[in-house]
């Protein structure tokens, strides 16, 4: 088992401090699921359903209030720093806002060499070679290395993000709305890219999105979230039974005018 999420709960708000009474609002309630190696798991839900918070907890950026996350059998939050460092190698992420994921003062080369500086002992020319390979992998020209992120288009930026996530050959990538801000053609292109890379590198993905269509295309299984809870798991050919899943399904816009009549919002 690559990843096990057990009974995760998260509350936001003020903790009690000295004389102040705490005020807490639950964001995640009793979330439990697991993920196999090489699998792609979709997580869908409306805005505010807690899916991004879940993603951040899996990544170890945020601590859950209760519950535990086991990555390759090791608890993310109680691991020793050596284990944590190993986990950082195997657990990567791509966020929605591609530009904000870059330090604006770094060039593309500096962004992409950072994982190697942290984990490998490559010299400069080896790093340059690696960065070129990475750019090649996401179909970008290696001439871009001296540019700043602000000089790239949104699609190029997102591909650099993916390249950075791939750098250390991770086992799991959390894609948090990673393609939602791109145009349809680019979305399709990047989905294809992700699928090819998945086959080549035996990657597992957690694909977090509000776009059921793209998620369905990408994922082996889909978890539907509502108000911080997992309400349904949809398998390969599963039906949408829970009202929240049906609502998401009905919200898919028809791709052709003729289909409009038989697929209306209810």
């Amino acid at each position: 088992m690559l990843l096990e999420v057990k009974n995760i709960e998260k509350h936001y708000g003020q903790r009690p401090f000295l004389f102040k009474r705490g005020q807490e609002a639950p964001v995640l309630q009793k979330v439990t699921f697991s993920l196999q190696e090489g699998e792609c798991l979709g997580i869908v839900g409306q805005s505010g359903s807690g899916k991004s918070t879940l993603g951040r907890i899996i990544l170890g950026i945020e601590r859950p209030t209760n519950g535990e996350v086991l990555f390759q059998g090791i608890n993310l939050y109680t691991a020793t720093s050596k284990h944590k460092k190993m986990m950082r190698r195997d657990l990567q992420a791509v966020f929605q806002n591609s530009y904000h994921s870059f330090n604006p003062k770094q060039t593309i080369f500096e962004i992409l060499e950072e994982p190697f500086l942290n984990f490998e002992h490559f010299n400069k020319s080896e790093r340059q070679q690696k960065v070129r390979e990475l750019l090649d992998c996401v179909e970008l020209e290696s001439a871009l290395t001296q540019n700043y992120p602000s000089q790239l288009s949104g699609g190029q930026q997102q591909r650099v993000n993916i390249a950075r996530a791939l750098a250390l050959h991770p086992k799991l990538i959390v894609l948090d709305e990673a393609i939602s801000s791109l145009d349809m053609i680019l979305q399709k292109h990047i989905i294809q890219l992700l699928q090819t890379l998945q086959k080549e590198m035996k990657l597992a993905y957690i694909f977090i999105s509000h776009d059921l269509q793209a998620t369905r295309f990408m994922s082996d299984r889909i978890l539907v979230m509502q108000h911080g809870q997992l309400v349904e798991e949809i398998g390969e050919d599963g039906a949408y039974q829970h009202p929240a899943s049906q609502e998401l399904y009905n919200a898919i816009l028809p791709s052709h005018p003729r289909e409009r009549a038989n697929n209306r919002f209810e």
């Binding site: 950082r88 806002n97 870059f102 330090n103 950075r164």
Partner: peptide, 26 residues
Amino acid sequence: KKEFIQAARITGTSGIKLVIRHYIPN
């Protein structure tokens, strides 16, 4: 709280390296 700091943490940068590479230049 900026995303690039979190992205750098996920990339494995921490401690003094994080300060020198990401905080100080900005």
